[in-house]
Design a protein around this nucleic acid. Structure first.
Lengths: 221, 221
DNA sequence: GTCTATAGATAGATAGAC
DNA sequence: GTCTATCTATCTATAGAC
């Protein structure tokens, strides 16, 4: 049934490169997100897989390359989500709100990605810069935003002077901060930004904020 | 002129506890902000001061306590800035915009604080939680925001359903993200959020966003 | 308060057999 | 591809003289 050279055994054990690689990436994602790049321990990652530390070096080359691979996979997930976004049938206002909600939901569901990105920024984005895969893909969301903004301006709905990248930054800011700064904000101000009871409140706040900004009346320049 | 026990020699050298402490804090702030908590080296911090590693342990007890002291001082600076804010003479709209600009400016001028806060969040805000000094001071800005929001609602200018803490989160999100995620955002999207030529653009964008949100017409609930 | 020297633990990375 | 054992470097922290 399966080739002898690269046996595919989804549920089995033993030699299966893809499976071993994926397992290492799963555990490494958790460990890097938990403790940061320098705080993470290769020994600890190996101990939590069915394989050994030697295999991490065999497959990835080293700790830096492992972190890069972790980042590549985490960024890939949000890009996939953006690609699945279907807003062509909505009016511009509803489409922007839908996009904001998608971004909001993805950040909430993937706190590991948020932590990894924080860690990568502490290190000057050097791993992203070194990754061919991450270098020139961009974000599918940007194309979507561009089309919505153009439609909204043509319809006379949007007045704001922003392009797609700036609007993406605005939306991401709120979504990112809520997850990334949860601990300091909660400790200092006594408010848990991730309290499930407040989820709809913040989700609505984000949409209201973005729409209000885009549609506000402005003094003629 | 000065007591023999605790000599105060602002420009001199030698035994001066306050001065040595301050110098260690200066260098430690840079080193922690540069490399993260686990990436920072006590040896490196000591090497860049006029004192020795032994004195860091003598004054602060250890690496963790040193980081806590660094955080305490960095947070103290932004609180001082908030305390100096004088907006009582402004109308609510102008006052909120002024507050947003102050927050914007402080984040831009103190990227070290932003990095330290990112690092502290990776570590679950455990140092803030362990600090008595940071535990129960809160942010002076919150009182200011509360008063402005009340005045704005009374004047019929503000319609949004937010309290001071949520508005503070909204303003901080944008200011924090711009600095904290500068590297990943710049690398992925080719746009430097801290480009001096775009500074006024983003400063205006933040104010417009917050004011639009607060003053937007809303459907009656 | 300040220095030198070093303890004690542990990290990332690799050798080499199978 | 997988394992055990280990190298080499380095880190936080402290001992002890002055």
């Amino acid at each position: 049934m399966t080739s002898v050279e690269e046996p595919v055994r989804p549920g089995g054990r033993g030699r299966d490169a893809a499976r071993t690689r994926a397992e290492i990436l799963d555990v490494a994602t958790q460990e890097f997100a938990r403790a940061g790049f320098d705080g993470a321990r290769v020994d600890e990652i190996a101990a939590r897989t069915r394989t050994t530390k030697r295999m991490i070096y065999y497959y990835f080359g080293g700790k830096e390359q492992l972190f890069t691979a972790v980042l590549e996979r985490a960024y890939g997930a949000i890009r996939d989500a953006e690609r699945r976004l279907d807003v062509e049938h909505l009016d511009p206002v509803a489409a922007i709100r839908r996009l904001a909600e998608l971004t909001f939901d993805h950040h909430e569901r993937h706190p590991d990605l948020v932590r990894l990105v924080s860690i990568e920024n502490i290190h000057g984005a050097e791993h992203i810069a070194a990754s061919r895969k991450l270098g020139r893909i961009g974000a599918p969301a940007l194309d979507v935003i561009r089309r919505i903004l153009a439609a909204g301006r043509e319809a006379g709905l949007f007045t704001a002077d922003v392009d797609a990248i700036d609007l993406h930054a605005m939306i991401s800011s709120f979504c990112f901060f809520r997850v990334a700064n949860r601990h300091t904000f909660g400790t200092l101000f006594g408010r848990d930004l991730l309290d499930p009871a407040q989820r709809e409140h913040y989700r609505t706040m984000l949409g209201d904020m973005v729409i209000a900004y885009l549609t506000a009346e402005r003094a003629a320049g």
